[in-house]
Amino acid sequence: MSEAFSALWASIVRTVVPIVVGSVLGWFASANLPLDKEFEGALTALITLLLTMAYYVAVRLFETYISPKIGWLLGYAKSPDSYSADKPGKHEA
Rank of each mutant, 00 (worst) to 15 (best):
I19H: 04
A31I: 00
L50T: 12
M53G: 11
G71C: 10
V59G: 10
G22A: 09
L61I: 14
I66L: 14
T15Q: 10
N32F: 06
P34E: 07
A31N: 14
D36H: 07
Y76V: 02
T48S: 14
R14Y: 07
T44A: 03
Y65S: 06
L73K: 06
T44N: 05
L51K: 07
G26C: 08
V17Y: 11
Y55V: 06
D81E: 14
R60W: 10
E63R: 14
G22I: 05
E40R: 05
A45P: 00
L43M: 13
V24Y: 07
I47V: 15
G41N: 11
A42S: 13
V24K: 02
A77M: 05
M53L: 15
W72C: 01
V24M: 11
P34L: 00
S84K: 09
V57T: 08
V59D: 03
I47F: 08
Y65C: 04
G75R: 11
S79Q: 13
L49K: 06
N32V: 01
A29G: 03
L46Q: 10
A31F: 08
V21G: 05
K78T: 02
L49W: 09
L43R: 01
P80M: 13
Y55L: 09
K69N: 11
D36E: 14
S23R: 02
A29M: 09
I19V: 15
L35C: 10
G22Q: 02
Y55T: 03
G71L: 13
E63S: 15
V21A: 08
W27N: 04
T48F: 03
K78C: 00
T44L: 11
S82L: 13
A29C: 05
A77G: 13
S79D: 12
G26A: 10
V24N: 02
V20A: 12
P80W: 15
Y56M: 08
F28P: 00
V59H: 07
P34N: 15
L25W: 01
N32H: 10
V17G: 05
T52H: 06
A85L: 07
L35F: 08
A45D: 09
W72F: 13
R60F: 04
A54Y: 09
M53T: 14
V17N: 06
G41V: 06
L73T: 04
A45N: 11
R60A: 08
S84Y: 04
S30D: 05
F39P: 00
W27R: 02
I19Y: 05
L61H: 02
W27S: 11
E63C: 05
G22E: 03
A29L: 11
R60G: 00
F39Y: 09
W72M: 04
G26V: 08
G26D: 00
A54N: 08
V57W: 06
Y65P: 09
A58T: 15
S67P: 02
L61R: 10
G41I: 07
